[in-house]
Amino acid sequence: MGSVSEQIKKDISDNDVVLYMKGTPVQPMCGFSSMAVQILSHMGVKFKGVNVLEDPNLRQGIKDFANWPTIPQLYVKGEFVGGCDIMREMYESGELEELMKSKSVAVSAG
């Protein structure tokens, strides 16, 4: 998985917010990925969506990378934040917005 983890490191350092997901932001292929996209969209956060279904190596590689067995996975400024449940809890409590602001990621007033 050497090259896969290198690619992941590059993606999460080149982009402030990266969501590894099933499907695309326009057409999510899983309810959890869909919810993750909705949360980020509601917040007005620009993010890069990476479709793990297009690459079996990435689909496994991202799980190994974060030591996290499920998808979606959210990364902000190179740091693993969590999956769908954590995103939802943090969104509802306002912590996700706090996190974005603390890392200087633009959030538009919803």
Binding site: F32, N67, P69, F80, V81, G82, C84, E89
Partner: peptide, 26 residues
């Protein structure tokens, strides 16, 4: 939150992935 979920994943072990496909946790 991440630590909690990792503890639960670890306890579930090989159930994650097969047969568990989707897992929502509080």
């Amino acid at each position: 939150r991440v630590e909690r979920q990792r503890l639960v994943f670890a306890a579930l072990g090989d159930l994650m992935g097969n047969p568990i496909h989707a897992f929502a946790l509080s």
